[in-house]
């Protein structure tokens, strides 16, 4: 058995453009990405980074234009049907039928995956108990809150005991409490069953929860690694300077310290090995020109900025000067 749950090699995808729109930019470009068995892989990227396209490919809904994908060791191009039996999918758009009850939705999913009879009913009961929705079993899904819907969705995706669970932006529409619950459950699930989880997200704090993160931008893989390692690899702190004369200060810092400060949103950002020392030096060097100067340990957002030169928000479009 391959130690990889997911192997994607040199995957490209180009959506066929509608008439007369001219060629569109490829959604994925030569993307290589791997997920180990039993890990929680976070796919982090701004909107338009290609993570939804990748998700669709992994969920067998879309064929990549080129490249090879193996899921659970099986080639996607040849054995999609077997793969489907091994993969559970929780889409961002709820796949529940609002006019059916929680139990009926689970039973429907089971039937489609070949379960039936008593085994199916037992499995549905088991999943409802596990996700604490058993008291809502006979309520129509349309009447449930966002958090309960998401739990039902999760129960549904797990009905056929998949080896790999794919979740597309699972915390969309959840309040912070429900979001914490969801992640607690995902970690439990991984610990107890050894299931591989692949979670797309555009939320930094969510990506921090993953055991490994792959950052995507403009259809390419930017970097991959444990969140702690990615931050450590930057090897530096982030110093933030607020000033009314940010642009003049940017030049002055370059002259005086030989450091590159990135200007974004009226704020200067400097990567530096010893944040604390630089803060004092800056404060001494430019008295009266600085409104505030602070430093912090790098976040995944800094990792993104470091690797791409783009800010994460605004779809990674805004170029930093």
């Amino acid at each position: 058995m391959s130690s990889w749950a997911i192997q994607a090699d040199h995957v490209c995808h180009l959506y066929k453009s509608r008439k007369r729109q001219g060629p569109s930019a490829p959604a994925l470009q030569d993307l290589c990405l791997h997920a180990e068995r039993g890990e929680i892989l976070g796919l982090l990227g701004p909107n338009g980074s290609g993570k939804t396209t990748l998700f669709r490919i992994l969920s067998t809904a879309l064929k990549p234009t080129s490249g090879e994908v193996r899921i659970a060791g099986l080639r996607l191009s040849e054995r999609a049907d077997e793969i489907r039996q091994k993969v559970g999918i929780v889409f961002q758009a709820p796949g529940l039928d609002a006019k059916l009850t929680v139990r009926e939705n689970l039973l429907h999913h089971g039937y489609v995956f070949g379960l039936w009879g008593r085994a199916l009913r037992q499995r549905a009961d088991e999943m409802m108990t596990r996700l604490k929705i058993d008291s809502r079993a006979d309520e129509l899904c349309g009447t449930l809150s966002g958090g309960l819907k998401r739990r039902t969705e999760l129960a549904k995706g797990l009905m056929h005991r998949p080896e790999i669970l794919l979740l597309d932006e699972p915390s969309t529409g959840l309040d912070p409490g429900a979001r914490l619950d969801l992640w607690r459950y995902l970690r439990e699930l991984r610990a107890e069953t050894g299931m591989t989880l692949v979670v797309t997200t555009h939320l930094m704090e969510e990506a921090e929860q993953a055991s490994r993160v792959s950052i995507l931008q403009a259809g390419r893989l930017v970097c991959s690694g444990r969140p702690a390692d990615l931050k450590k690899d930057m090897g530096s702190d982030v110093v933030l300077v607020r000033s009314d004369e940010a642009e003049t200060l940017q030049g002055a810092i370059r002259e005086r310290f030989g450091l590159t400060a990135k200007l974004s949103g009226g704020e200067l950002q400097i990567e530096h090995g010893e944040g604390a020392r630089l803060v004092t030096q800056l404060a001494e060097a430019f008295p009266g020109k600085i409104q505030s100067v602070t430093f912090r340990k790098p976040t995944l957002e800094d990792v993104f900025l470091h690797h791409t030169g783009h800010r994460f928000w605004n779809g990674g479009e805004e170029k930093i000067s």
Binding site: A61, A98, H109, V112, F113
Partner: peptide, 14 residues
């Protein structure tokens, strides 16, 4: 079904 996502989940089933 297509708009609400139900169809999608059936389409990626075996």
């Amino acid at each position: 079904d297509r708009r609400e996502g139900f169809l999608q989940s059936v389409l990626v089933s075996p």
